[in-house]
Design a protein around this nucleic acid. Sequence first.
DNA 1: CATAAATACTACCTCCTTGTAGTATTTATA
DNA 2: TATAAATACTACAAGGAGGTAGTATTTATG
Lengths: 136, 136
Amino acid sequence: MKLSKTSEHAIRVLVYMAQNPEEQFSVNTLHETLNIPFKYLGRLMPSLAEAGFIVATHGKNGGYRLLSNYEFVTIASIIDVVDGMDSYSECILGFENCGDGKPCPLHNHWGPHRDAIKKLWETVTLKDLAKRGFKI
Amino acid sequence: MKLSKTSEHAIRVLVYMAQNPEEQFSVNTLHETLNIPFKYLGRLMPSLAEAGFIVATHGKNGGYRLLSNYEFVTIASIIDVVDGMDSYSECILGFENCGDGKPCPLHNHWGPHRDAIKKLWETVTLKDLAKRGFKI
DNA sequence: CATAAATACTACCTCCTTGTAGTATTTATA
DNA sequence: TATAAATACTACAAGGAGGTAGTATTTATG
């Protein structure tokens, strides 16, 4: 029922960056602004770059900048990179082949909620979340 | 987005027992029927007994039996014992004081789903789930 | 009373997540 | 060209979840 800490961090960083999508941010700035451990963030950012959300500039005055497709980056695509989206398709009781044909006791109760949340994450984009006035 | 393995086990055990609520089950029987590790189950059951879901009979021919209030035992009360229900009230991004007044970027999207699932777990009882034909 | 079969307890092991530390590499600039 | 400031890489440490193992305790029964 929770995101991993790493997913929380990733979403917060990217939403924060999306509030000033043209700006370049150093890891140190993000660390100080968002209260995310510096070294941990320094390991997360390259994976977000590899995933195609951001791009790094090396050397002095370097940092990270959002890619221009950020308007279409969904929460699901972020979770997918960090945690994986598997749990949003799987049985809540862990049965491999639970489904409409052979449901577990919770299947009919849980399925609609799980699907609704999955669809939510697949629909909401960084742009949707980048409005000011939110706690980041 | 997942229950812990231990919660999965606890729910499966209790739903299975609720299908024959008068019967007494040994840990070994439950282990073999439900494919839950014997020793792990042997540690889980006393905690379910302490929580008031089941009662143990010691010695030869002993085992566990559901208590008579099982009809009113909710999924939430089981999760509460094993995992805790805290995450069903907390902010999805981990903000301590996220709320309607000072929402995080996901608060308005996530809150309704989180609340709906919490209500579901607080509503569904072992009796509701004990119907036959389910995969246990 | 001895034995068998059951729960109860305690210690340990492994893996994953989170976080920390140090060092290498890259690049702007005085 | 030397320095400073940034990312990149790699190893390690702490803690919790899941699982294993062994032993103690309880009790029915021959």
